[in-house]
C-alpha cells in the first residue's frame, strides 16, 4: 500500500514543532511497511487532487498566515476541495485549521479569506473585544495558552494550545471533542476542533500525533480508505506512546493546579499562609543535612 502526504507550506507554516506530526505519520507507516511519501506544497505549487491522500498544515504567526492565505485559496483551493470531497483526509493545526474555515479576522480587524472547506470562522479576541495590542501583557491577556485535554471517541487527546483566535462552528461540521482541560475553540462553548468528512481541524500542538497514536492511526486508516477501502492496520508496540500520553495528562493537571494556586486565593489570609510556607521551607533549609 502507498500513501502520499501533502505538506502545505512546510517552510512557512511550521512554527510550533508541528512537523513532528509528519515524522510520526511517516514512521508509523514505515513500521507497517506502508510506502509513505511526503510531498511539499509550497507557495505557487499546484495540487493534483488524485495524488494526495492526506493533507497536513501546521500553525504559523499571523504574518505567515497573511503570506500564504491568497495562494491557498487561489492556487490550491479547488484541488484540495475536490480531493476532500472524494475522501482525502486532512489534519490541520491552529493556523491551518483557521485558514480551512471561511475567514480569520486578525487582531488588526481585517479578514484573511479561508478555503471554507470547514464550516467555521475565527475572530481574534482583540478584534472581537475592540482592544488594541501594545505590549506583551495586553497580547497575553486574551490569548489561549496552555495544556489542552480533549475527549475524543471515548479516549483522551493531549496537547498544547496557543492561539489568539476564537473559532466558531457552523452547522456543516461537528466538533472534534469535548474540552476536559484548557480552552479549546473559543474558551466558551466547551468544544475543541472541527470535523468534516475525513478532515480534522484542531488547536492541539504538542505535536499532537506522537502522544496520541490512536488519532495518528485513525488518520492513516482514513487516508488509505480512499484507495483501498476499509483497512485493518497492523497493531504497533505503543507502550512508550501511551506512557508519554499518561504522563502528559498528569503533568497538565498538575500544572493547572500550580497555576490556580498561584493566582486564585488572594487577600491577607492567603498571603499569611504563603509566608508561613516560606518560613517553614527556610527552617528546613537551615537544618544541617
Amino acid at each position: 500500500m502507498r500513501l502520499t502526504i501533502g505538506y502545505l507550506y512546510p517552510s512557512i507554516m511550521s512554527q510550533y514543532g508541528d512537523r513532528g506530526n509528519i515524522i510520526c505519520l511517516l514512521q508509523r507507516c514505515r513500521w507497517r511497511e506502508i510506502d509513505a511519501q511526503v510531498k511539499a506544497l509550497e507557495m505557487g505549487d499546484k495540487v493534483d487532487p488524485s495524488e494526495i491522500d492526506l493533507f497536513f498544515m501546521g500553525g504559523g504567526a499571523d504574518s505567515h498566515q497573511r503570506l500564504i492565505a491568497q495562494d491557498l485559496v487561489e492556487v490550491k483551493g479547488e484541488a484540495i476541495r475536490k480531493a476532500v470531497e472524494e475522501g482525502a483526509a486532512a489534519l490541520l493545526i491552529c493556523g491551518g485549521y483557521q485558514l480551512f474555515g471561511h475567514f480569520y479576522r486578525t487582531f488588526r480587524g481585517d479578514d484573511l479569506p479561508g478555503l471554507g472547506i470547514l464550516d467555521v470562522h475565527t475572530i481574534h479576541w482583540a478584534a472581537e473585544e475592540g482592544s488594541i495590542i501594545k505590549d506583551i501583557t495586553t497580547a497575553g491577556k486574551g490569548r489561549m495558552v496552555g495544556n489542552l485535554i480533549v475527549e475524543w471517541q471515548g479516549k483522551t487527546l493531549i496537547g498544547f494550545e496557543n492561539h489568539g483566535g476564537r473559532t466558531y462552528l457552523g452547522p456543516k461540521v461537528s466538533p472534534l471533542g469535548k474540552v476536559l482541560l484548557g480552552r479549546g475553540n473559543n474558551g466558551r462553548d466547551g468544544w475543541e476542533g472541527a470535523v468534516y468528512k475525513n478532515v480534522i481541524g484542531t488547536y492541539l500542538h504538542g505535536p499532537v500525533l506522537p502522544k496520541n497514536p490512536h488519532l495518528a492511526d485513525y488518520l492513516i486508516a482514513a487516508a488509505l480508505s480512499r484507495r483501498y477501502g476499509q483497512v485493518e492496520l497492523t497493531p504497533l508496540d505503543d507502550r512508550l506512546e501511551w506512557e508519554a500520553h499518561v504522563h502528559a495528562l498528569q503533568r497538565a493537571r498538575q500544572a493547572k493546579g500550580e497555576a490556580i494556586a498561584k493566582t486564585s486565593p488572594t487577600g491577607p489570609k492567603a498571603w499569611a499562609h504563603s509566608l508561613a510556607d516560606r518560613f517553614a521551607a527556610s527552617l528546613k533549609a537551615l537544618r544541617p543535612s
Binding site: 510550533y16 514543532g17 508541528d18 512537523r19 513532528g20 495558552v145 496552555g146 500542538h205 505535536p207 506522537p210
Partner: peptide, 9 residues
C-alpha cells in the same frame, strides 16, 4: 517554557 513541542524541531 510550558510548551515542549519545540523538541520536534
Amino acid at each position: 517554557g510550558r510548551d515542549v513541542s519545540w523538541i520536534w524541531d
